[in-house]
Structures are given as structure tokens and as C-alpha cells.
Design a binder for these strands. Structure first.
Lengths: 160, 160
DNA sequence: TATTGTTATACTCTATAACTATA
DNA sequence: TATAGTTATAGAGTATAACAATA
């Protein structure tokens, strides 16, 4: 029976603390380990377009949105501080990927929108990103992928 | 049919980019989202013991190891730079949780070991940690947890 | 008074590379 | 020469809070 890295850790705990049932680590440890390895490969694609993970998330949020988005919505959705979001948006503005437009109804506020250049870029990046993800999952067949998504979704619906 | 956060994102992509098959996001996005939420709760327990995630990993590595561990082994296992590991070990030494012992065979090297205090602490933390993880998984039954672990393990064996 | 968004500050964490001592 | 580990430096990224403008 083949093993992964988490099996090794579980065996070590079993040897040192046989009184402890570490089986939850077999689930949560693997979620963390998988995420870690997936992140490296996902970020590799973003890096090809000179984007960080968060910059991708901002551009993708703007691309997905059917209505205009404010900085407040962005930092709340992406779980960043308002200050951090200002800094990030600044960087994207400097690169000509997004613009700030004054709000017509609330003069304290603004709307962050993609420039044409930003739209073209995020559309390219998303395509490369999804292709990369599909390739990353090729070690599981369609049924296994669906099962995995369904189990995680069940957990998420109870915990998010 | 109930939905989670990833369903929302998938629906938005479907609306804006109907040409794009984003189904891989349904898997990888959920792994990431689950990891994100799990991390918050896992770190909550570590924080109760005034430990960071990495400090826990160092203490746990030492506790699990059957033989003495060098800083080099630690930073390679935990994927940190040597400098970062030195800083981390320093902090744990200052708190009396680990000690550096000169190696008897290689005088450039040292062995990092748990103090009695460190051993007592990590044993307590691991117990609280596993209890917390078990509670976090209570929305899945034993069979579902096993399935989830098995699917992730299959992916990990092909990708790590 | 409360809220939106920006700016300024300080902090945490890290990688890099220079460095010491030893192999 | 190469390696183990430490130290010093600099950089990235962040939260916090003060701030200005508007609600």
C-alpha cells in the first residue's frame, strides 16, 4: 500500500503517542498539504503574467461582477484591510489594468473598473489558469473530481 | 439545492464567460476555501498556547521524531530558509521550549531538542489540536471523512 | 455622528547573502 | 572547497489608526 507525506506523519505520531487518535489529521492535514502544492502551481501561472494571487483575485472579482464594485466590497470579499486594498488597487492603476471612477450617488465612494487592457489581461489569465487547474487534476478521473468537490462542498456549507 | 461560496463564483463565471468550462475551480477552489477556513480555526487553538503555526510545526516535528533533529532537517522539512529557521529556533530557545545541543560528530552542527517544558507543552497542544480538528469535521460522518482523505491521498501520491 | 477611502506608520515575516567555523 | 548554522540587511506585505471628505 502506497503512502503519502501525511501517512508518514500519522505513523510518527502513532509511534510516539499511541494513545492519541490522530485520524482527523488524515483529513485536515491532506487538505492543507494539497492546498500548499496546488498554490505553488497556481501561482506559477499568475507569475507568468506578473500577477500576485491577490492581484488575480481583484481582477477576477471585477471581471465576474455584473455591477460596478467599490473598494469596500473588494476588501470585504477578499478579506483584506481597507488600507491593504488601497495599496493593491494603486498598483493595478499604475499598471493601467484598473481605474477608479467617482461614484455619482456617494461622493465619498468610487467604483473600481477594469480598463480595456485589464479586461484583455484577466481573460487571458483566467483561461491559462483554468487550463492549468484542469491539468493539475488529471490524476483524478471525472467521477473522483466530482466526489471530491461534493464532499468539500458539504463541509463548506456547514462551516462557511 | 443549497450552494456554497464557490458555487456563487462558478455561477458568476458562467454568466460572464459561458464559453469557459470552469469546473476545475469547483475542486481546487473548494480545497483552497476549506483550507482557509480550517486554518483560522486551527490557528485559534495554537494562539491559545501563544504559538504560531510554524512554531507548532517545529515543536511537533521534534516531538514526532524518533531521533535528534538538526536545524537543516527542520528548515528543509518545513520549507523555510535557514535564516528563518534560526530566528524561529531562537524564539523557542528564549521561551525555554527547545535547546540547542552541540553535535558530537560534527562540530559545525547542533541538535535541536525539546526541553521538559517544551515536551509538556506540545503534548498538551497536540491533544487540543486533534480535538479541535475532530470537532471541525463533525459535519461529515466517518465514511465521508475517510472518502475525503482517500481522494486527497490519491491526488497527493500523484503530485507530491 | 457614522462611513468611505487614502495615507502614514510600524510591525511581522521572510529570503538573501555575507560570515564563522568546521568538514 | 563545500557545508552547517548564524547574523545582518532589505524587502514584501500587512494591520492599525489617523485623516479628509461626505453622508
Amino acid at each position: 500500500m502506497k503512502t503519502d507525506h501525511v501517512d508518514t506523519i500519522l505513523a510518527q505520531w502513532k509511534a510516539q503517542r499511541p494513545d492519541l487518535d490522530c485520524s482527523p489529521m488524515g483529513v485536515i492535514g491532506r487538505v492543507g498539504r494539497a492546498k500548499q502544492l496546488m498554490t505553488i502551481r497556481v501561482d506559477g501561472v499568475f507569475k507568468q503574467f506578473d500577477l500576485s494571487n491577490i492581484e488575480f483575485d481583484i481582477l477576477a472579482s471585477l471581471r465576474r461582477a455584473s455591477e460596478a464594485v467599490t473598494p469596500t466590497e473588494l476588501y470585504q470579499t477578499l478579506m483584506l484591510s481597507s488600507g491593504a486594498m488601497s495599496t493593491r488597487v494603486d498598483g493595478l492603476v499604475k499598471r493601467g489594468l484598473v481605474e477608479r471612477q467617482a461614484s455619482e450617488i456617494d461622493r465619498r465612494s468610487c467604483l473600481v473598473t477594469l480598463t480595456t487592457e485589464g479586461l484583455v489581461l484577466i481573460d487571458k489569465v483566467v483561461e491559462a489558469h483554468v487550463d492549468n487547474e484542469r491539468e493539475m487534476l488529471s490524476s483524478l478521473d471525472d467521477n473522483e473530481q466530482a466526489q471530491l468537490a461534493a464532499l468539500l462542498k458539504k463541509w463548506l456549507m456547514a462551516n462557511e
